[in-house]
Amino acid sequence: MIEEYLYEMITLVVILTSLLLYFLLITQFKQENKKVLETIHLSESYELSGEEEGSFDTTSPPFEKEGTTVHTSPRKKKIKKVKVPAHGKIHKENFKDFSGIKILVAEDNIINQEVIRGLLADSGIQITMADNGQVALDILEKNADFDIILMDVHMPIVDGFQATRRIRADSKYEHIIVVALSGDTAADDITKMKTSGMEEYLEKPLRMDAFYDILYAYTKEESQLSEFVEVIMTKELNGDQGLHVCGGDDEFYKDILHEFIQSYTNSPQKLSDLLDRNKTYLADSMLLDFIGITANIGALNISKIALELKKAIKDTEEKSYSIILEEYKLHLEILVRDIKEYIQ
């Protein structure tokens, strides 16, 4: 009798314990589920809330991951842009119209830096140079007092896309216009620049009229243009193109040509070595810079050949680029000879 009683008591205790554990688990599950639903609700509320106060677009795609860096899409400020009135050919002197503005230039190529620095020399525009996107971000962290950033999209360490996203994610930089600098002209490339937060796009080689128009559109309010001076045509090197980029400054143009000779006279051998070691991506990067620089100085023929070579090096199996590389070498030798005659 006693044994049956104990057996019933033990059975009852087991049943009660099981019921208690069951209710505890159900309660915990409901609490966790409630937290998840609240989180989802908050997320949906943020996505559907439209615009924040002020003039930023807050429509944000999901988080995006590049390597080990996680970031969100940039916030874009709606900045005033005025209509540029009709004008004649732009000369270096015309950039004095923007005296006092501050420009941060993020560009890793030394010759391109010199082109911009020389073009804006004596204009009264304050220029700060950064060799890559990380340097630009470090400069901004210490001093955000810039009107415009000229941002090369292809740079080492931190490229222009990454740097711009980080700039656009910080409201203290909302007053700064970011202008892309690139030789990439495809619609998809330009869309990528816009998506990253760049307001405008300047094609390499830099055209003075386009550069002037962007500075005017974002820094001027009145239609006051200075006089414009025609640039003189020179030689087979197409000095009109080169002098135009250099603002009609003959001495500055010669300085750029001198730097070009020092930097690229041995480029055929460098390219050949890179391709022999299957360093195609480095050869491609070198050619991209070369194409932009040669177009800047007015060496249009070899610029086109370099573009063909850039396309041909992708065919690593057939190595069809060998013939074009020889053509590149021949034209470069002629170009270097012509430049030496011109600058002496």
Rank of each mutant, 00 (worst) to 15 (best):
V70H: 05
V105Y: 03
I167Y: 07
K34S: 08
F29R: 01
L287N: 12
G124V: 07
A106I: 05
N301G: 09
E51V: 13
N112P: 04
S285I: 00
Y46A: 06
K270E: 07
K304C: 00
H91S: 12
L137H: 07
G54P: 00
E53S: 10
I127G: 02
A163Y: 00
A163V: 04
I291C: 10
S55I: 14
L6P: 00
R337N: 13
K254I: 01
T234S: 13
L16D: 02
N296A: 14
E341N: 14
I40A: 12
L42F: 06
I26H: 06
K34Q: 13
E308N: 12
P205N: 13
G247Y: 09
K311Y: 05
L257P: 00
K83E: 11
A144N: 14
S322N: 14
I2F: 01
D108K: 02
S267T: 11
G67K: 09
I190N: 03
L12A: 11
E107A: 04
K142Q: 13
Q262P: 00
K92D: 02
I323C: 06
T17V: 11
E318P: 09
T185L: 03
A136P: 01
S43F: 05
R165A: 03
G160L: 01
C246F: 10
A186Y: 05
G100L: 11
I157L: 13
F56W: 12
V336G: 02
T195W: 06
S49I: 11
L274D: 14
F252A: 02
I101D: 13
E222K: 12
P85C: 06
H87R: 15
D170N: 15
I111E: 08
K270N: 10
S303D: 03
T185Q: 08
S18P: 00
M9E: 09
K194H: 15
A106E: 02
K30V: 10
N33R: 11
L307I: 00
T59Q: 12
L202H: 04
E174D: 15
F23A: 08
Q224I: 13
D250Q: 14
E107K: 12
C246Q: 14
E93L: 05
D284G: 00
F29M: 08
D152T: 03
H87N: 02
V14Q: 13
G100C: 10
G298F: 08
Q31W: 04
I26Y: 10
